[in-house]
Amino acid sequence: MRVLIVPPLFDEMNRARAMLVAVMRDLAAAGIASVLPDLPGCGESVQDFAAQSLNAWRAATAAAARHFGASHVLALRGGALVAPPALPGWALDPLHGDAVLRPLLRAAALAARARGEESGVAALLEQGRAQGLVLGGYRCGAALIAGLQGATMQGEGLRALALADLAAPGPAPWLRQEPAPAPALAAALAARVAQDLGA
């Protein structure tokens, strides 16, 4: 058994990273191997973020699953949109593409307003779909923005887990503006995965 972890998208990826590493350590302690690749254009990937799309990320996670011989997938938040469709597994607090886009577009609209420009969310979305847009500091290509709009969770084998299902105290690390460790959530998530795998 080997679990491929698909991280959240955009800034949530950074905020969740420490927790995901803690999950991997807890899984290892239960005898379960896991891998956490960077999505193309993210982290230590040398690819250009502006060239990415949901389809490119789906192809990459599917290739990673084959390469590492993953038997299951654990996707978080927006990562559920790009999980390899053929593997069984879990999606923690999965998001629709519109829910990924909304805070990014709102932040861009607030920043535009602060500069004295009147660009609403709808106008920014149209601009992004046509020619790409910087969202949350990421240079998003038109394909990524158009793909996120209306995108839904991939993979019929993914079981959606809500935070409440894990009964872990404390805030979700990906919602925090300042990263903080979430050892209880990591332990609860790893325990749930290990339990479902019968490890």
Binding site: D11, A99, P103, R106, L110, L175
Partner: peptide, 14 residues
């Protein structure tokens, strides 16, 4: 200082 435009958008979502 914690509340920049990205944080505002995140807070609205929350």
């Amino acid at each position: 200082p914690e509340l920049d435009s990205m944080a505002v958008a995140g807070l609205f979502t929350a």
